[in-house]
């Protein structure tokens, strides 16, 4: 197994770059990070829409949320793959396709996290902000969201972990992320399948496990500051 790592570690980490497309673990991380960052604004908008007092905003977004959550991510990727070219007019590469699918899919899941975060605040906060005369969006911007986003941090880290795992599905459309690279290595080496896929699993495990420990630490830290403040 050691010579396997010795021969292929660079390919595993960054794909064929610079002689080919950027790939491997590097691509997985870049994709997951951009996916989460780009879906955040969408998640915020959808989340706020989900709690809107106006049915005309709330219902379509709620329908969209149920639609996306009832569909496998693979399906969303295929829709993006087959229909982005016709919408944009030219051929879209795998990274853009995957990113689009991730943003839509994660945006919807983030909407639920945002919604939970906002609803978790005491009702009096919004009432009070409105009583002072602040408008709905002003109240959201200065009072509600700053508090809600802080309490949402552990959930956001967990969503990041999910997104990392979701990038693996880019395999289907030939995206050169780390699972795809592992399979490429496997086809080249042929005799060490178990080792190759073991290393793949180990990589994901180390990455996601450390992040989940971080999320756990974050949650504890948040609870600690809250109880410190309350005790004062």
């Amino acid at each position: 197994m050691l010579d396997l790592i010795h021969d292929y570690w660079l390919y595993f980490l960054i794909g064929q770059y610079p002689n080919g497309p950027f790939g491997g673990l590097g691509l997985t991380l870049v994709l997951a990070t951009s996916g989460l960052l780009l879906s955040l604004p969408l998640g915020l908008i959808f989340g706020i829409a989900r709690i809107s007092p106006f049915r005309i905003i709330r219902w379509p977004i709620t329908a969209l949320v149920y639609l996306v959550r009832g569909t496998p991510l693979l399906m969303v990727i295929f829709w993006a793959y087959f229909f982005l070219p016709s919408i944009t007019g030219h051929k879209t590469d795998q990274i853009t396709t995957m990113l689009t699918a991730l943003v839509i899919f994660d945006g919807v899941y983030l909407a639920e996290i945002v919604r939970a975060g906002i609803l978790g605040l005491p009702k009096g906060q919004l009432e009070c902000a409105r009583s002072l005369g602040l408008g709905y969006f002003e109240a959201m911007r200065f009072i509600i969201l700053p508090q809600a986003l802080r309490s949402m941090l552990p959930s956001l880290v967990n969503q990041f972990i999910s997104t990392i795992k979701e990038t693996s599905l880019g395999y289907i459309i030939g995206l050169t992320e780390v699972s795809f690279i592992a399979s490429q290595i496997n086809t080249q080496v042929l005799t060490k399948s178990t080792q190759v896929y073991f290393i793949l699993g180990l990589t994901y495990f180390v990455l996601c496990f450390s992040l989940s420990r971080f999320a756990y630490w974050l949650e504890k830290a948040l609870q600690r500051t809250r109880s410190q403040k309350a005790a004062a």
Partner: peptide, 11 residues
């Protein structure tokens, strides 16, 4: 839980 399903199936 820390490994995506795709990687599981490939394994």
């Amino acid at each position: 839980r820390n490994i995506p399903l795709l990687a599981h199936l490939l394994f």
